[in-house]
């Protein structure tokens, strides 16, 4: 069934979009990532104009995150306090990121910088996660008791606060900075930023894996909603028709994903996510390194 999208101005198969939304939704529910880093390139591939794909992707992330976070709230795996602290940095970061994006656009080369930042961040995070989670899996196989996290610089900063759900007593400065950094990146890369947020919460803040996913989803809702509004307001590139189809697929997928996430062990979840991240990274890197079939591209203005 073909459907014409009013803003993207192309006709696409409705079931293809539902399927895409569903696939990304499952991953979102399982890993707590918004799935934007997968959704955006997939939308490019089926012929949605990049500007529309990025803006509409953030709108879809709102829906799947709301759906996912409700499942997590029910299981009490959301650290609301930590989420709000991350969010305060995230919104400021997203606003700064939108300005940076506009600047990059004015000097050209925004595509390259977006792709490069994908490759760099996905590469670093994916590799680190893979090493860590393989190590963790080996340790759990040997039935060794998990090591209690050591105190690092994060624990020696002022303005300490108690985050009961995470079982942490740390300074609010690191979470605000993490939120800010992810906010900047998510605005530049057109994603929710969960794939950066999740590892940052585990490895920098030392939060338990159990609450990381729900808390990440919680703060992504607000950052993604803010970014959607900015795109709709400044670029008119949010396509409601496209969003509705992706959302319908996505919210169902997110529920399924959240349930799958409960069945498999946290270490396995992390290995899967790490492999996924590395895979997307390699795919993008190949695109930069191999001579493209078509050297020219057309950009329409206005």
């Amino acid at each position: 069934m073909q459907i014409y999208l009013p803003i993207a101005e192309v006709s696409v198969n409705a079931f293809l979009l539902l399927g895409l939304g569903g696939l990304v939704g499952v991953l979102s529910g399982m890993f707590g990532v918004g799935g934007g880093f997968l959704m955006t390139p997939l939308l490019f591939m089926i012929g949605i104009p990049p500007a529309v794909a990025v803006a509409t992707g953030t709108n879809q992330i709102v829906a799947s995150s709301v759906s996912g976070v409700l499942a997590h709230l029910k299981r009490k795996t959301v650290d609301l306090k930590m989420g709000c602290v991350l969010l305060s940095g995230g919104l400021v970061g997203a606003a700064a990121g939108v300005q940076l994006f506009a600047y990059l656009r004015s000097i050209g080369q925004v595509d390259l910088l977006v792709t490069l930042s994908y490759v760099v961040f996905l590469g670093i995070i994916g590799t680190l996660m893979l090493i860590e989670s393989v190590g963790a899996l080996m340790r759990s196989r040997r039935m060794a008791a998990p090591k209690r996290k050591k105190h690092n610089w994060v624990h020696n900063l002022p303005i300490k606060s108690k985050f009961r759900t995470s079982g942490l007593y740390i300074s609010v400065i690191p979470p605000v900075l993490v939120g800010f950094g992810v906010g900047v990146l998510s605005a530049i890369m057109g994603v929710g930023g969960g794939f950066i947020m999740v590892p940052a919460m585990i490895y920098i803040l030392g939060m338990p894996t159990k609450v990381v996913v729900g808390t990440s989803l919680f703060q992504i809702i607000f950052v993604a909603a803010f970014t959607t509004l900015m795109h709709a307001w400044e670029n008119h590139t949010v396509d409601i028709g496209l969003a509705v189809l992706l959302i319908v697929g996505g919210v169902i997928g997110a529920q399924v994903g959240a349930r799958i996430g409960l069945r498999i062990k946290a270490e396995q979840t992390r290995i899967l996510l790490a492999l996924l991240v590395v895979g997307v990274c390699l795919n993008l890197a190949v695109g930069l390194l191999v001579e493209p079939k078509e050297l020219y591209s057309i950009g329409t203005e206005g």
Binding site: P6, I7, N59, Q60, V62, A63, S64, S65, V66, S67, G68, L70, A71, A225, T228, L229, H231, A232, W233, E234, H236, V238, I240, G241, A243, V244, I247, V248, V251, I252, A254, Q255
Partner: peptide, 29 residues
């Protein structure tokens, strides 16, 4: 929709968000 997106971008953006939130909540429920 096209006119709304261009003439009333704020309302259009809020409408998109409302759809997203309702859909997310609805699916969860």
């Amino acid at each position: 929709l096209y006119n709304l997106a261009h003439d009333q971008p704020l309302w259009y953006g809020l409408l998109s968000l409302a759809i997203a939130i309702i859909a997310g909540y609805g699916a969860s429920t």
